[in-house]
Amino acid sequence: MEQAALKVEDLTIAYHKKPVVEDVSFEVPEGNLIGIIGPNGAGKSTLIKGILELVPKLSGDITIKGATYKSMRKSIGYVPQRESVDWDFPTNALDVVMMGRYGHLGWLKRPGKSEKQKAMECLDKVGMAEYANRQISQLSGGQQQRIFLARALAQEADIYFMDEPFVGVDAATEKAIIQLLMDLKEKGKTVLVVHHDLSTVKEYFDWTMLLNKRLMKIGPTQEVFIPEYLQETYGGRLAILPDTKSGLLLK
């Protein structure tokens, strides 16, 4: 079998008393677009932060393409939830995208012409080229989200983690972004996306991960994304309309 792009073993994370992510183990193959699905507070953001070592974990081993996380840092891209930064920071869109290149620059090298060019290309890909010199506080929420995406593209990673990249993005942009992610996938990259809109899961993702503190299921979308497992994940709180949703689900 080919090497897994990402392998997580026995990951457990607790902030206070109870673990919010418990005993999660899974492997994802390379070249896949993976949706992470689960109710609010299920631990989706925490799972990503744990994998990226942004929060301390109680236990767990992360391997990326067979190597440790630390040695593979350069090949990891991250799109945090949009509220996590101060948008009044004195900087413009192009500059934020260039930050994606910092990991490749090493300790002392400064970003130069080639970084700038790369950043412009990425801005262009997300359709934001004309806003390159705009102060970031003067961008709309959806535009800010696209800047974050362009920054992740600039990281030129092999595996991407994106926390709710579609929040506050209009339908047309969402389609454009998903097209972008599909292109990445075609190039053999692996993309994990936290996603809330169940109606588009089938259309977007090859693989689906159902998470609610524990890993409920992971696998190819048509096998995993079925009402039974969904009900289990959402604790039976999901009302799946027989004609519309499940029709879509079971298609």
């Binding site: 932060k49 990226l52 070592e53 942004l54 630390k70 840092r73 350069k74 990891i76 991250y78 945090p80 996590s84 930064v85 101060d86 920071f89 900087t91 934020v96 930050m99 910092y102 990991g103 920054r151």
Partner: peptide
């Protein structure tokens, strides 16, 4: 700059 603007990304980059 990166540490001030987005410490999470900075940490993820090492």
């Amino acid at each position: 700059k990166l540490v001030s603007f987005d410490p999470a990304l900075a940490a993820a980059m090492g």
